[in-house]
Simulated scan of single mutants.
Amino acid sequence: MADAYLSGELGSAVGFAGAGAALGAIAQQNDQMSQQVSSGQLKMNPDAANKAAEVYKSKADEVDRLVQKADALARVEGLGEYGSAQQLAGKFGQKARNGSTGAADLLANLRNELNRKADLFRQAAKDYVATDEQIGEDLKRGSQA
């Protein structure tokens, strides 16, 4: 599920700018899901929702490992003292960390959105259980009246 989510959005992205745009679309989908959960329009079977949440959490953990690797690119050493070597090291640093458009930055945003999606699934499961319990209580009161 998460693989299809990622490949569908990020798989079509070209370069860092494309990845940033795809992350914006993912955030927008999460915003819509958040609104549905908050308004009570989205409630999910707890088993299915919790399984989906675990998949997204697992993917977020994988992406977190990539964040750490990409972050290491910001500190490239051993290229020498020449100006061209220092410029090259600086370019690696910018590709790794550049506000919101560096590789580590984009990956960190992806990790955050995956964790957010997992939390939304967990909340949808809780809402399902709460609604189910409320219906059960209402039925008990109705049968006792």
Rank of each mutant, 00 (worst) to 15 (best):
G142I: 08
G8L: 04
F16W: 06
A53C: 02
Y56V: 04
Q86Y: 07
Q35R: 15
G24P: 13
G78N: 09
A60L: 09
R116A: 13
N112I: 07
K140M: 08
Q144I: 07
A130D: 14
G142F: 11
F92Y: 12
Q32F: 05
A130G: 04
L120D: 02
L120G: 01
D61Y: 04
R97D: 02
R111T: 10
D132P: 04
G20P: 00
A108I: 00
L88E: 02
E54M: 13
D127A: 01
G24I: 12
G18M: 09
R122H: 01
I26A: 15
D31Y: 01
S84T: 13
Q123F: 05
Q87W: 02
Q35A: 15
E9Q: 14
G80N: 07
K69L: 13
E77V: 15
K59Q: 05
M33F: 06
K43W: 00
S100K: 14
D119T: 05
G90C: 04
S39T: 13
K140S: 06
S143I: 13
D47A: 00
R116T: 13
A72Q: 11
G90F: 02
N98M: 11
K140C: 00
K59G: 00
K57T: 00
S34N: 14
R75D: 14
G78F: 03
A70M: 13
K43C: 01
R75N: 14
L79N: 10
L120C: 06
K57Y: 00
G11N: 03
L73H: 10
V63D: 09
Q94W: 07
F16I: 03
Q68P: 01
N45M: 08
Q87D: 06
D3Y: 03
S34F: 09
G15V: 05
D61H: 03
L23T: 03
A60N: 08
L120K: 04
E54V: 05
